[in-house]
């Protein structure tokens, strides 16, 4: 009897040892992979602190005294700060609008079986498939008719439109996840639908709403094609402002990298903070 348990214990011990070795191997491989994926971004950030000839030497400069000149020139000379401000404004307001309108559609879809509901949801999603290049001229004509061209609001409207399918789909999933019983309980207490939505449903779904907001924000923040063509005087967004350093005369790599770092940083911080919910968001609720 003891032989059997002993053998089992040895087997278990061996397995644990193998397991431990495997953990180390996995850790190392994962570290290397992470370095591969992080490498280019680290390179960008380090280049942002280099001076011209360090950035262009045939043998890469790895150790150097960092300079803030690039950031200074990006902010002072080319007013990249105002481009960042425009980006923050457009991305934030379009996110808020998309959330408001999206929640309006998503909540009933999640709570009620409506005839043709699937068709409606699919139609909304299919809007995302249309390549932006297809609709840019008619969209511009429409915006012109309501007098929005040349202002940042044209981008706000378009980004709201662009993000609405996303928010509808995400929020629908998040709302559907919430047990109906809690809402029902509040009805019994005499609360109205509206109040129960704002008082109960929304707070409970908040993590999901945050993830949705973050995704919508990232898409609006990174968008280039519409911004490039539609922005008016003084309403450049950050990705468009960045292309100013690619002139026919020279490509100002160090400035590009400094501006690129500034563009990436806020969304990265947001993504890290809401990482857990981001997964749900990215998959349109395919994974819980």
């Amino acid at each position: 009897m003891s032989a059997v348990t002993h053998e089992a214990a040895v087997r278990r011990g061996r397995r644990r040892q193998r397991q431990r070795r495997l953990t180390v191997v996995r850790g190392v491989v994962a570290g290397v992979m992470t370095l591969l994926f992080m490498g280019p971004i680290l390179w960008m950030i380090s280049t942002a602190f280099k001076v011209g000839n360090q950035a262009f030497s045939a043998t890469p400069t790895i150790f150097f005294a960092p300079t803030f000149d690039n950031f200074r020139s990006v902010f002072v000379k080319s007013q990249f700060g105002s481009a960042l401000a425009t980006s923050i404004f457009t991305a934030t307001s379009s996110t808020i609008l998309a959330l408001l309108l999206g929640a309006g559609i998503a909540y009933p879809l999640a709570r009620r079986r409506v005839r043709g509901q699937q068709h409606l949801a699919f139609w909304i999603l299919s809007l995302r498939i249309v390549p932006p290049i297809v609709v840019i001229i008619p969209l511009f004509l429409m915006l012109r008719n309501v007098g929005l061209t040349g202002s940042v609001w044209s981008l706000v409207v378009i980004y709201t439109y662009m993000n609405l399918p996303l928010t509808v789909w995400l929020l629908r999933g998040f709302f559907a996840d919430l047990p109906v019983e809690i809402e029902e309980a509040s009805f019994v207490d005499g609360a109205s639908r509206l109040r129960s939505f704002f008082g109960i449903t929304l707070p409970l779904a908040l993590p999901g709403v945050v993830a949705t907001a973050l995704l919508a924000f990232i898409f609006a923040w990174n968008e280039f094609l519409f911004a490039n063509i539609l922005t008016g005087a003084n309403t450049r967004t950050a990705p468009v402002g960045l292309t100013e350093y690619v002139t026919p005369v020279s490509v100002e790599w160090t400035n590009i990298m400094a501006a690129g770092t500034l563009v990436v940083l806020p969304v990265w911080i947001g993504a890290l903070a809401a990482q857990r919910y981001l997964v749900r968001g990215l998959t349109l609720g395919a994974v819980k």
């Binding site: 307001s93 609008l97 309501v146 007098g147 929005l148 061209t149 040349g150 202002s151 940042v152 609001w153 044209s154 706000v156 409207v157 008016g232 005087a233 003084n234 309403t235």
Partner: peptide
Amino acid sequence: VAACGGGSNNSKST
């Protein structure tokens, strides 16, 4: 309101 804000913003800037 948002749209009008945009409109007036527009006319101011252009």
